[in-house]
Design a protein around this nucleic acid. Sequence first.
DNA 1: TTGCTCCTCACGTCACGTGAGGTGGC
DNA 2: TTGCTCCTCACGTCACGTGAGGTGGC
Lengths: 291, 291
Amino acid sequence: MKDLLRIGELARLGGVSVKTVRFYDEQGLLRPEYVDSQTGYRYYTIDHTKRLAAITNLRAADFSISEITKLLKDGNIPDDFSTAISSKKQALIDQRQEIEKKLKIVEALAKSSWTEKLFDHSTIKLTSLKPQIAHTVRQNIRHLGAPVTQLFETAEADVAAEGMRANAAPFLIYHEPPTKRKNLNIEICIPVTHNAQSNLEVRNIAGSEVACAVAFAGGYFQTDALFLQLQEWIDAAGLQSAGPLREVYHRFGADQDDYRLPPRMIARNKHEFLTELQIPFSLTHNNMESN
Amino acid sequence: MKDLLRIGELARLGGVSVKTVRFYDEQGLLRPEYVDSQTGYRYYTIDHTKRLAAITNLRAADFSISEITKLLKDGNIPDDFSTAISSKKQALIDQRQEIEKKLKIVEALAKSSWTEKLFDHSTIKLTSLKPQIAHTVRQNIRHLGAPVTQLFETAEADVAAEGMRANAAPFLIYHEPPTKRKNLNIEICIPVTHNAQSNLEVRNIAGSEVACAVAFAGGYFQTDALFLQLQEWIDAAGLQSAGPLREVYHRFGADQDDYRLPPRMIARNKHEFLTELQIPFSLTHNNMESN
DNA sequence: TTGCTCCTCACGTCACGTGAGGTGGC
DNA sequence: TTGCTCCTCACGTCACGTGAGGTGGC
């Protein structure tokens, strides 16, 4: 006696919907034993429940349909199964990390006394910075102003000479709190495109999460107060600041045309300056995570 | 002097792509200050960076476009903002829970000595059971077999009389390990549709994660060995069993026609029996999670 | 003038769910 | 015969990314 199951019975045994079983057929993952050419009805054997279970197990472990198709192709365990498993595990750990990042941000948003800064007419922005390559010069300077300008002038000229200017804003890293204003250790950074041939001194700047004071217009006299506010906000939001402060110059006074800067970076006067402040923060905090 | 930004500049300042800014325009979230009717070029003010920052902050906290549209509608903080925040936080915690479930399953799959059971011709299936309502009768019985059949007969008849039979397989809960086979405390369960009017004794059976031995055909003499294997697998996979074993009767011998069972549940002989074994397991284990 | 920016379609993503409209099977 | 099951389209999901093919701006 042949004991074939109809699609609804198979679906019920497998704990999935009929639509899902049809979809797996369409994808070639789970072909019926027999299809009635008159009615189009799909018929399955009881052994199909095992194949379906293999599929749902892999789906429950977050494998995609195309991954499962590859894994189940020749009916036995492929050599790279354990590779697939461990990279899937890593992908899930990464996803969890992403969610924990979002949770941190939700919690930061929840601090209602600061909500308007993040939300209403937001002046504070949380974002992830990608790692980038930059030509940097680190130095002790007596005070802000002219010495910084001087360093940038030289550095821009050097980068321009090599034709390596990346299409991104230059910035300044304060390796000591800028509120000191005197005897500072700073690093000026000009993003560059990668070029192995060049002798220009270049370093990798790691990516990170940062809290930013969104670009403000006008002179630099405002930065101290803004940095303080930003730091205050970070503390109140329950985040841990991690790493030196940065000042990003989206639009600034450039003295010479031959830096070949894109025009949008060039301010003709102080009122056109456009500056952003950033403080890196970390997502890992007090409680340890395993794995 | 009007200082309008083009879309690319705004995008760069906001740390998003040009496509994203266009998308937010299309969604009505971030309308340009001015659109050139000749060229279609969008122009923005610097203040648009703040609105954009508000949007990216909310996106970073996993709010959807439509949620953000509502939250930002009237330009100030809506009353239900903190409600929105806390339900979003809960949603993220739930998502994390889902991912941790998947991680557990990946780790179970990784136990290669057992892989073929989950994967190759899978006889073991991991799945989530939804909570359900069932008419149940719990009793001490001397031994399996006739007393169980008797209880089911009565219960099926009672459920049929009330017209409450749900379209799902009946099952047996072993409140003690079935391997004892004598003096057992069991509960028979007939899934029912909800009906507040009826006097039929009914209870909620909580949902849970279960490991299943996929439906096997034939007599019940096989169950002991299968339960042992399943339990052994659960241990090897590093899962914690949690809760009493279950035996689900997808197809079984029903003596009377007036139970009004769907025909697919009825076996005409022992070889048509179709039975599934389930052991609940828990996802929370040794290491504690905060929140 | 060249190259960069900007424009508007149109389509793809992922694993199904949700109908619509119709037929088969007991 | 009724009601349940099954069938095949066709479309929606979510927040964009990826071209194609063409034009504007310095």
